[in-house]
Amino acid sequence: KKYKVVEVKENKDGTVELVVENENGEKKKITLSKEELDKLKAGDTVELK
């Protein structure tokens, strides 16, 4: 499934919390490390299994 990044929030521990949404409007929260996030920004599309 493809999800669009709608919100990006940095946590104090250096991880980043993303809120992503698919075309049905379903939202998910995922947490990434700073390194994983470096290639993402709001409006990008991510694929989740």
Results as ranks from 00 to 15, higher is better:
Lys1Arg: 09
Lys1Leu: 12
Lys1Phe: 07
Lys1Thr: 10
Lys1Met: 10
Lys2Gln: 09
Lys2Leu: 12
Lys2Pro: 06
Lys2Thr: 11
Tyr3Val: 03
Tyr3Gly: 01
Tyr3Trp: 09
Tyr3Ser: 01
Tyr3Ala: 01
Tyr3Gln: 01
Lys4Glu: 02
Val5Asp: 00
Val5Lys: 00
Val5Glu: 00
Val5His: 01
Val5Asn: 00
Val5Phe: 02
Val6Thr: 08
Val6Glu: 01
Glu7Asp: 08
Glu7Gln: 08
Glu7Pro: 00
Val8Phe: 04
Val8His: 03
Val8Thr: 04
Lys9Leu: 07
Lys9Asn: 09
Lys9Trp: 07
Lys9Gln: 11
Lys9His: 10
Lys9Met: 08
Lys9Gly: 07
Glu10Trp: 07
Glu10Ala: 09
Glu10Pro: 09
Asn11Gln: 09
Asn11Trp: 07
Asn11Lys: 08
Asn11Thr: 09
Lys12Ser: 11
Lys12Met: 10
Asp13Arg: 02
Gly14Val: 00
Gly14His: 04
Gly14Leu: 03
Gly14Arg: 02
Gly14Ile: 00
Thr15Tyr: 12
Thr15Pro: 01
Thr15His: 06
Val16Trp: 12
Val16Asp: 00
Val16Ala: 11
Glu17Arg: 05
Glu17Cys: 15
Glu17Asp: 13
Glu17Lys: 03
Leu18Pro: 00
Leu18Gly: 00
Leu18Gln: 00
Val19Ile: 09
Val19Glu: 08
Val20Tyr: 14
Glu21Pro: 00
Glu21Thr: 05
Glu21Val: 13
Asn22Trp: 09
Asn22Leu: 06
Asn22Pro: 01
Asn22Met: 05
Glu23Lys: 05
Glu23Ser: 10
Asn24Phe: 14
Gly25Cys: 04
Gly25Asn: 05
Gly25Pro: 00
Gly25Thr: 01
Gly25Met: 03
Gly25Lys: 04
Gly25Glu: 03
Glu26Pro: 00
Glu26Lys: 04
Glu26Leu: 11
Lys27Pro: 06
Lys27Ala: 07
Lys27Arg: 11
Lys28Phe: 15
Lys28Pro: 00
Lys28Ala: 07
Lys29Tyr: 13
Lys29Val: 09
Lys29Pro: 03
Lys29Gln: 11
Lys29Glu: 06
Lys29Cys: 14
Ile30Ala: 03
Ile30Val: 13
Ile30Leu: 12
Ile30Gln: 01
Ile30Phe: 14
Thr31Ile: 10
Thr31Leu: 07
Thr31Asp: 02
Thr31Ser: 10
Leu32Glu: 00
Leu32Cys: 07
Leu32Asn: 01
Leu32Phe: 10
Leu32Ser: 05
Ser33Thr: 08
Ser33His: 14
Lys34Tyr: 11
Lys34Met: 12
Lys34Trp: 13
Glu35His: 14
Glu35Lys: 12
Glu35Cys: 14
Glu35Tyr: 11
Glu35Gly: 14
Glu35Pro: 13
Glu36Cys: 12
Glu36Met: 12
Glu36Leu: 12
Glu36Pro: 12
Leu37Gly: 15
Leu37Tyr: 10
Leu37Pro: 05
Asp38Arg: 08
Asp38Thr: 12
Asp38Cys: 14
Asp38Trp: 03
Asp38Gln: 08
Asp38His: 12
Asp38Tyr: 06
Asp38Phe: 07
Asp38Glu: 09
Lys39Ile: 10
Lys39Val: 10
Lys39Tyr: 12
Lys39Gln: 12
Lys39Asp: 15
Leu40His: 08
Leu40Lys: 04
Lys41Gly: 08
Lys41Arg: 09
Lys41Trp: 06
Lys41Leu: 06
Lys41Ser: 06
Lys41Gln: 08
Ala42Lys: 08
Ala42Ser: 07
Ala42Trp: 04
Gly43Cys: 10
Gly43Met: 05
Gly43Leu: 02
Asp44Tyr: 02
Asp44Leu: 03
Asp44Ile: 03
Asp44Arg: 01
Asp44Thr: 02
Asp44Phe: 02
Asp44Trp: 01
Thr45Pro: 03
Thr45Gln: 06
Thr45Asn: 06
Thr45Trp: 15
Thr45Arg: 03
Thr45Val: 12
Val46Arg: 00
Val46Trp: 04
Val46Tyr: 02
Val46Leu: 14
Glu47Val: 11
Glu47Met: 04
Leu48Val: 05
Leu48Glu: 05
Lys49Trp: 06
Lys49Val: 15
Lys49His: 15
Lys49Cys: 15
